[in-house]
Design a protein around this nucleic acid. Sequence first.
RNA 1: GCGGGUAUGGCGGAAUUGGCAGACGCGCAGGAUUUAGGUUCCUGUACCGCAAGGCGUGUGGGUUCGACUCCCACUACCCGCACCA
Length: 801
Amino acid sequence: MKYEHQPIEKKWQDKWEEAGVFHASNESDKPKFYALVEFPYPSGQGLHVGHPRPYTALDIVARKRRLQGYNVLYPIGWDAFGLPTENYAIKNHIHPAEVTKKNVARFKQQIQSLGISFDWSREINTTDPDYYKWTQWIFLQLFQRGLAYKKEMAVNWCTSCKCVLANEEVVDGVCERCGSPVVHKVKSQWMLKITEYAQRLIDDLDLVDYPERVKAQQKNWIGRSTGAEVDFTATTGDKLTVYTTRPDTLYGVTYMVLAPEHPLLEKWKDTISNWDEVRAYQDAAARKSEFERTEVAKEKTGVRLDGVAAVNPVNGVEIPIFISDYVLTSYGTGAIMAVPGHDTRDWEFAKKYGLPIIEVVKGGDVEKEAFTDCDTGIMVNSGILDGLTVEEAKVKIKEFLEEKGIGHNKVNFKLRDWVFSRQRYWGEPIPIVYCEKCGYVALPESELPLRLPDVKSYEPTDTGESPLAHMTDWVNTTCPHCGGPAKRETDTMPQWAGSSWYFLRYMDPHNQEVLASKEAMEYWSPVDWYNGGMEHTTLHLLYSRFWHKFLFDIGVVPTSEPYAKRTSHGMILGENGEKMSKSRGNVVNPDDVVREYGADTMRLYEMFIGDFEKSAPWNPSSMKGCRRFVERFWNFQNIAVPGGVRKELETSFHKTIKKTGEDIENLKFNTAIAALMSLMNEIYDTGSITVEELKIFTILLNPFAPHVTEELWEQMKFGGGMVCQQAWPVYEEAKCQEDTIEVAVQVNGKVRARILVAADLDKDGVLAQAKSEAKIASEIAGKKLVKEIYVPGKLVNIVAK
RNA sequence: GCGGGUAUGGCGGAAUUGGCAGACGCGCAGGAUUUAGGUUCCUGUACCGCAAGGCGUGUGGGUUCGACUCCCACUACCCGCACCA
């Protein structure tokens, strides 16, 4: 009997939707389980085979949890604002909203053809005004508490998208999205003070269950470092503060370096005798692109300031001051003290400009190279610190600095505030107006959502203004504060805005009064299990944690962290082992796979392909094994006989129930499927399957292959509704153990025989049986038995000399 | 440079409180059924060897009765960050 997957899969997808079996309830006596996958950006290309991997994985978890009696929320939606849609709209003269609608319809149809048990009654879309009303509302809360502010600053400007990018969106000096060069441009931008949450974003990682690599990457990105700020004095009398992580090396300072943009330079204009040279260097630094300036390999350059010097506060020594573009204004104080004896960059710089190098920690040879690996060394040439260990010196110097009032401990972060405006059309309008008299004024809540106006042209402008700026009717408005003339903000929010809180909306997606009701959030929070890509670790994941902490602080959400557990899937690569992409021509469309092999086979294949957390190349030849597995399951019908679980298969069934359940929770879908395959092989070896056995097998397989299991359940007239409404089988620990077990017998660590023993036989009994084995007896004959080891149920090792 | 990870048959991959390496699947070889087979079923399959046996988890050491697993020193590759003082 051939399994016709096409009509059968469609049939069950329709039935599930009609019956609403996957709709979550906000009121239930059952325990809740909130599973979340990152909602997709509905691009024009449609789904590729990478998308279903995480969806299927959490679908398996969600389906299994439902069978176990949980009230499961497994929602989906569309992260639909963004550049590709807007660009497509411009090119083809279609409104971005129309493009979005079309793409969403295609994505939805594709996802539904995979049999994912999403709760479609909670579908959301970030471009829906009923949704972005609340994105704007959150922005206003940030603004009213001083966490959103406007700032004139040099920003990353993509020359092709004609748009500002966040630091996180610039990769190797080019735009992450289109690969065009990124240059610096001074513009007035909306910023969000994520830096205010830097410490808590690190600390609270202890509260959540994230993979170590995700935690490490976030910590690395936030970049906390501890050190001290120390005040040097310039010969002009100005205070010159530096940040250092090594205040213990203060006696080794032989010069200072300022960033070319350091504000004191302008003040010293008349004192610096080589001002022309300094100005030329400043200009050159300003012209460099982000990429040129951060290129690591390049040689350090700088200019010495003539006529101004600095005085080291610990020993009164006068030292020269340089400017160099390797010192950044955006980190620390924009000025550093240079210790060439113990810092590689300072050492190179000192060698190049012939500056003195002083050893302050013993152990290296500072004439040959900087001695940086010196945490265990002893201080020398360091006045009050001489003879101390580095560790002791750190404590003593800090006491000294504080006593004299010339320095104090300081924590610094690499994390910068989040550049939040984009000069594009297809994003949430920022609900702020600018009034000559009152400055930036928040729109009253009653005017939300502030809808995107219908513009004729979405073309980005070369002036760096948003396309919205041309809509004078829309731009010109009145100030909500004083009633005078005012202009609307014409920049829009970045794509990350809508995705920073979407998981809250799923809890109560149709609420018109608040972003989600208190009751709904208290019931569903936090997300129990959130799976997503590693590429979002320092973008979406960090941003949404920040917004959630803010919403927690103002009493909107009940938990300080949004996601209790995070997991990450590996990428599906092309057949050639390279990343799937249109340009490489190795993209596989899931529609073709579903048509040829069926959704169940596709799901099994993607889960069986390898370790879920690692990337794996697409290999259609092993698809056959999964299809074969589905058909062999289907053919169980041909050998089904009445009866309960047979004695000889009892242990196997208990073991498989245990393993399948545990493996699903541990993301080990590949071994869960392998266990089911093994059980199937064992069943076929007996020549038949009993009705009870088939029922259990069907329920175990259902989360992986939902369609074929439903159809077989119906064909067999097992009753009680659909498979997805049954109860997950329960195993007994005691019955996972065989009565008779095989024990390997080793002599001096090498396996020489295998014996069958009763499971409850004690050590002496097993050893006696092992030694009576002919092979073993001859091996140990005439030798002295030194040691005898028995690992219960596994092996015996006899050490003989 | 810093941080994280990986290395096992022809291939994807199993196996971790140290205890039978190669589960499961693909592929391949042989056989059965079939008019036929890109179907199904059975058998075999790390490597060397006819066999007894030997050898084997990136490399080199170590601990142990016993190491894919633990320790030390390397190599190669992948990912993230990177002039962060």
